[in-house]
Design a protein around this nucleic acid. Sequence first.
DNA 1: AATTATGATTCACG
DNA 2: CGTGAATCATAATT
Length: 443
Amino acid sequence: MDDQARIMQSIGGVSLAGHSVQGGMALPHGHDGTDGDGRKQDIGDILHQIMTITDQSLDEAQAKKHGLNCHRMKPALFSVLCEIKEKTGLSIRGAQEEDPPDPQLMRLDNMLLAEGVAGPEKGGGSAAAAAAAAASGGAADNSIEHSDYRAKLTQIRQIYHTELEKYEQACNEFTTHVMNLLREQSRTRPISPKEIERMVGIIHRKFSSIQMQLKQSTCEAVMILRSRFLDARRKRRNFSKQATEILNEYFYSHLSNPYPSEEAKEELAKKCSITVSQVGSPSSVTRFSIVSNWFGNKRIRYKKNIGKFQEEANLYAAKTAVNAAHAAAAAVQNSQANSPTTPNSGSSGCFSLTHSGDMFLSMQSLNGASYQGAQVGANVQAQVDTLRHVISRTAGYNDALGGNTMYSPRGINTNGGWQDATTPSSVISATEGPGSVHSDTSN
DNA sequence: AATTATGATTCACG
DNA sequence: CGTGAATCATAATT
């Protein structure tokens, strides 16, 4: 290489410039140059040497090579040959010069990024889990067995990165090697820098295609992992105790109309820390719909067998009442003084009211309701109303006591369906030993 | 092992 | 589209 530079330099003054400008064309005409004979002679000489060089011993060849390199005509020939080669080669390439961003590759990249395999290393935890948690509201992911998943994911991630690095390194090594080789050979072969560049491009493309394979298989691995661990749609995981508590509280304190609004669901989901943990396929199921599922199941199951839930209802009613004791009580009292009644808000009373004696209890539950309301920011009014209703209802119930329907009549038509369902109270009292255990019996 | 509890899914309805 | 109802499939309990 040094030789090369030196030679080029030393002879540069002679004719290199001229060649580079119109070299390709000049060559043919060069024959008629003033010093045509000498040049011809030289060329013949050189050609002869080239032809015979392979037969020589190594040393001789080396010597000759050096001789050739030092020849004053060498650079000129070289550049001319380069240009000719350039011209012929140009047609071949050019088409594939630019590599458009492969959509496939982009997809893979995106996915790896989303799964947390690519992207910046996060300490310990899998980026995927973090991302998922963040996406779903950021509650703590109560995944215990998810650690398994995360471990595997980390493993994949590590493999991916080491492999990627390896490829990168290999690519670089190979590239420099080839470049060196080409540069070396460019002393004896017509290889232009441009061509080297092109070669490098080709190499990079090759390696990137290999990388794509790596990415693809990584993606596959992640998918398999996912499907095995998280995706098992039917893999049921019970909610945490806390979560069911919260849901139940809401349910029983809104028993009259246990249809949480979107916001309420959102709120509940957040509160319950319901996150990815039970969402197998995040795309299809959101934690939001988990709450919906829960309420759907709860409603129907409650309705199906109210008696069975009596206990639970009382329990939660009491609980909420206790929890909210002060606030709720105060609120209720205050409101009691001045509120107009709006019949309808309904009552949580449905369950606890079962028996007349339950007034107290019902009140409690009511309080629970009001508490909840307060939490959400509901108005006092509603609480009052509910209270009144309960009371009136109890009264009504007393009347109807002998019969069945405990409070059925009160069905606020709006939610008649739900209310109606509760109607078969007779069932309750009949089947309900348990109910009586609590509060029933009394009168 | 049988039973119950429970979360999720499917389907029909309005 | 959100529900209710039926159903599935698994977790928990007996």
